[in-house]
Computed example of a mutant assay.
Amino acid sequence: MTIRSATDSVTILTGMYAAEAEYLAAGGPGEAPFDLLAPFFAPDVVLHQADALPYGGTWRGHEGMERFFLAMSQVWESFDMADQEFLATGETAVVLTQVRARARATRRELAFPLLQRIKVEGGRISEVRPFYWDTEAIAVACEESGGRRGR
């Protein structure tokens, strides 16, 4: 097992977030190629979203990540990630992000913290576990939206 330095993990994560911003600015799912993000994720990446969310469930592999981004884009009109703080030790990183979002179906706006525990192995993101401050508030704000669950 190769242990990456904390600097490597932060570099990979900042690169991924920049690529995600480019991907979304280019229109996101259906408009922009997932190839912008794919290099940052291991082929067997696993994303665990809280079941209470409209896009809850476990999303696996690059295909799962593409479906996740599609589900997110169906739920959120905007999802701006700002004021990020990174803490990384070896393969594990924690990212605290302040999110400002607007639900597509209800047009409700929310501001909330999002904490993500991310594993970086072999120079790629292998697992993501987001923790939302209040999943109920998010679900209520998006209640008319029907995101698809991952598999």
Rank of each mutant, 00 (worst) to 15 (best):
S73Y: 00
D35P: 03
R60E: 13
R60A: 11
G64Q: 09
L36S: 03
F68E: 07
D80L: 10
G61N: 07
L37Q: 11
S73E: 01
W59H: 12
G61M: 09
D83H: 14
W59M: 03
H62E: 01
W59C: 03
P43F: 03
A38I: 02
A52E: 15
V45C: 12
G57M: 04
H62T: 03
D80I: 05
F41M: 13
V75W: 08
L36G: 04
G57V: 07
S73H: 10
H48E: 15
A42K: 03
D80W: 00
D35G: 13
T58M: 09
P54C: 10
Q49S: 11
M81N: 07
G61S: 03
Q49W: 02
F40G: 02
D44L: 03
F68T: 02
W76Y: 08
G64T: 09
A42F: 04
L37W: 08
L47Y: 14
G64Y: 10
P54V: 07
L37P: 08
A52R: 15
F41T: 02
P33M: 00
H62K: 03
M81V: 10
G56A: 08
W76P: 09
D83L: 12
L37F: 05
D80S: 11
D80M: 05
D35W: 02
H62N: 02
P54Q: 07
M72K: 10
D83W: 10
D80T: 11
A71H: 08
F34G: 11
P33Y: 00
G56Q: 06
V75K: 07
P33H: 01
G61K: 08
R60C: 07
A38T: 11
A38K: 13
